[in-house]
């Protein structure tokens, strides 16, 4: 199966909840826009049952241009990390367990 995209999420809201196609598309867009805006404001996002999106500040560290081997510092930056919740981890593990049997 191909990857899940916003279009398929909107289709499901249309089919399962009876939202019209425009509303379904808007809600899916807003979902990701609002999560992104929150992270931009340096505010963690907690989606219970799924996981948390956290922000981490990383200091400057030495890096290297992989092509030339030249040393260039990697500037300080803020990055997003995702910590899956217990429920999601358990569901994913249950699947992987079935596959390997």
């Amino acid at each position: 199966m191909s990857a899940l995209t916003k279009a398929q999420m909107a289709d499901r809201l249309f089919e399962e909840l009876g939202l019209n196609k425009r509303e379904a598309k808007e809600v899916v867009e807003m979902f990701f826009d609002e999560v992104r805006s929150s992270l931009e404001r340096n505010e963690q996002v907690k989606l219970s049952g799924f996981g948390n999106f956290d922000l981490r500040e990383k200091g400057e560290r030495p890096g290297r241009n992989p092509k030339t081997g030249e040393e260039i510092p990697i500037s300080a930056r803020r990055v997003v990390t995702f910590r899956p919740g217990q429920k999601l981890k358990a569901r994913v593990e249950a699947y992987a367990g079935r596959e390997s049997e």
Binding site: L4, M9, L88
Partner: peptide
């Protein structure tokens, strides 16, 4: 709607599939 989106994302990962959201 929000709960359905999150459930669909969980189902997708639990079935071993990827999720791709541009941007």
């Amino acid at each position: 709607a929000v709960k359905t989106i999150i459930e669909q994302m969980s189902e997708t990962l639990s079935a071993g599939n990827r999720i791709e959201i541009r941007g």
